[in-house]
């Protein structure tokens, strides 16, 4: 059996496109939406390393499992939907706490997905493909096209918040600009870039862990705070 060398976890609210991002990358297609049950495990060969990727369910129902999927993760991809500001808020409220079980030197990527839904909105401002029947019927004062709801700066601000939360120094981690992505699983825009950038960053982490000895030992000793309080399974 191939033993995974490093772990990457996809987190984010339901319907932001976590599964679609991964399918786009792994299988080069954009399949019909399915609602993930629990978490799905994939193994990706990158150079000579086996990187495991956990695609988790965004549904609140499976929230309790989140910290388990994150245990010992080398990188976490926090995904939101650029058309729904609430999905970025949820990342902070519900998902950031789950990453407490990740490695102490865990990398964070902030990914705004579904930029394809904005594009014609910004290009031509006129009559839009009815993004939701409510828009068509409403005809309210604003134009029917969807204005970009979450700006890249918001993601960068969130990234800095994470560093603060993790008590990490900005100098020790990759710059925010490097770790914030805007993608479209539908068109494939930036998807390869996202995963491959991350893989390349995870490899040195793997090497460092190997040098430090068995990762389990490191994990246990490096947790100073009782993890339980944060795991949030009982909210």
């Amino acid at each position: 059996m191939r033993k995974p060398d490093g772990k990457i976890v996809l987190l984010g609210d339901m319907n932001v496109g976590k599964t679609s991002l991964l399918q786009r990358y792994m299988e080069r297609r954009f399949p019909d939406t399915v609602s993930t049950v629990g978490g799905a495990f994939y193994l990706k060969q990158w150079r000579s390393y086996n990187i495991s990727i956990w695609d988790t369910a965004g549904r609140e129902q499976f929230h309790g499992l989140g910290s388990m999927y994150c245990r010992g993760a080398a990188a976490v991809i926090l995904t939101y939907d650029v058309n729904h500001p609430q999905s970025l808020v949820e990342l902070e409220d519900r998902f950031l706490g789950l990453t407490d079980t990740a490695n102490t030197d865990c990398l964070f990527a902030i990914v705004g997905n579904k930029v394809d839904l904005l594009e014609d909105g910004t290009a031509d401002s006129q009559e839009k493909e009815g993004l939701g029947p409510g828009v068509a019927g409403g005809g309210s004062s604003g134009s029917p096209k969807v204005p970009k709801q979450v700006q890249p700066e918001d993601a960068v601000a969130f990234y800095k918040k994470i560093l603060k939360y993790k008590m990490l120094d900005e100098k020790d981690v990759p710059a925010a600009e490097q770790m914030c992505f805007e993608t479209s699983a539908k068109t494939g825009y930036n998807v390869d870039l996202l995963f491959e950038t991350l893989f390349d960053m995870v490899v040195p982490v793997i090497l460092r862990q190997r040098a430090q000895g068995p990762p389990q030992t490191v994990d246990i000793t490096s947790y100073k705070t009782p993890r339980r309080t944060r795991s949030g399974c009982c909210a």
Binding site: Q23, V34, G38, A40, Y42, A57
Partner: peptide, 13 residues
């Protein structure tokens, strides 16, 4: 039989 299980290895309660 759910479509969610068509790919990858799933782990769920």
């Amino acid at each position: 039989g759910a479509p969610a299980f068509a790919a990858g290895e799933a782990w769920a309660p």
